[in-house]
């Protein structure tokens, strides 16, 4: 029987669905609450075949991935993928390098340079996001210079170290929706529209979801974007613009509770299937 370690902190609906799918497939699930263990490479006894990182805390998740990878345990997603996806700037760089259409972006540490960057981005409005952030938290739509100066001063005086890095993005008119595409390994399995009257379309901020049919163009760009960050278990946020699709962000510990219903696809089942396939392929590599 395959033994899957589910690395978690708070257990959400998604973790419950993954556990349920694992049990149905005869996979033994070992729940590891990262708040309850000591990452001690000398004393930690590994009693599972593969770890699936599902921590709601990015910092804890990242240390756990590093730890278990260093012990030789296969982990999904890998440290390489998690490191890129948790950071919006690194993600944008990877997408750009791979030729995947993505909104214009820039990063600045200084107000004068941020003002210069606005010109490069096409003028106001621009979006400012914490490089490490999620659920639409602390996103700011900057409509003019006054707002940019105010946000910069607040971040400079009140923010922690990561808020000194001003990640900026061109504002893309989403017409009330964006697309979330789910990519499991090499396959784009389904997608939803995230619909909101607000310019922020995160479901954590109240956006509703509807099934989005997978066009050839969407599958191609989602597949390219997933591979650009290293591939694995990924959820991509994509803008539908007059110039075609643009990949905005890539999430590596995807939430999908609002997407299984509209799409009719069991994302949790696909995740477990991929874990099993990944383990098989990894064993083969190790034995060859």
């Amino acid at each position: 029987m395959t033994r899957l370690a589910l690395l978690h902190s708070t257990i959400r609906k998604e973790e419950k669905l993954i556990i349920e799918s694992s049990i149905k497939k005869g996979v033994e699930v070992n729940l590891i609450d990262l708040r309850e263990i000591i990452l001690d490479p000398v004393r930690f006894e590994v009693n599972f075949d593969l770890a699936l990182e599902r921590s709601v805390s990015t910092v804890k998740g990242n240390y756990a991935i590093s730890f278990f990878e260093s012990l030789g345990v296969p982990v999904l997603n890998s440290l390489k993928v998690a490191t890129i996806c948790q950071d919006k700037f690194l993600t944008s760089m990877c997408l750009l390098k791979a030729g995947v259409p993505t909104p214009k972006f820039a990063l600045a540490f200084d107000l004068e340079k941020a003002i210069e960057a606005v010109d490069y981005l096409g003028g106001f409005p621009v979006i400012i996001k914490p490089p490490l952030g999620s659920w639409g938290r602390l996103l700011a739509k900057i409509n003019d210079l006054d707002a940019l100066e105010a946000i910069f001063e607040h971040k400079d005086l009140l923010g922690g170290p990561q808020h000194k890095a001003l990640y900026m993005q061109e504002y893309v008119e989403k017409n009330g929706h964006d697309i979330r595409a789910f990519v499991i390994g090499p396959e784009v399995i389904c997608a939803v529209y995230r619909i909101s009257e607000h310019w922020i379309t995160n479901t954590a901020r109240g956006a509703k979801t509807e099934n989005c049919l997978l066009s050839d163009e969407l599958v191609e760009i989602a597949g390219q974007a997933a591979q650009a960050v290293g591939g694995g278990l990924l959820a991509l946020d994509i803008f539908e613009t007059e110039d075609g699709f643009k990949v905005n962000e890539v999430n590596h510990t995807m939430e999908f509770r609002n997407s299984e219903g509209p799409t009719g696809v069991s994302i949790s089942s696909a995740i477990v299937d991929y874990c099993l396939r990944y383990l098989k392929e990894n064993r083969f590599k190790n034995n060859s």
Partner: peptide, 11 residues
């Protein structure tokens, strides 16, 4: 009571 959302929480 669940802990308050922290800065690094998310997906």
């Amino acid at each position: 009571e669940a802990p308050a959302i922290e800065e690094d929480w998310g997906q």
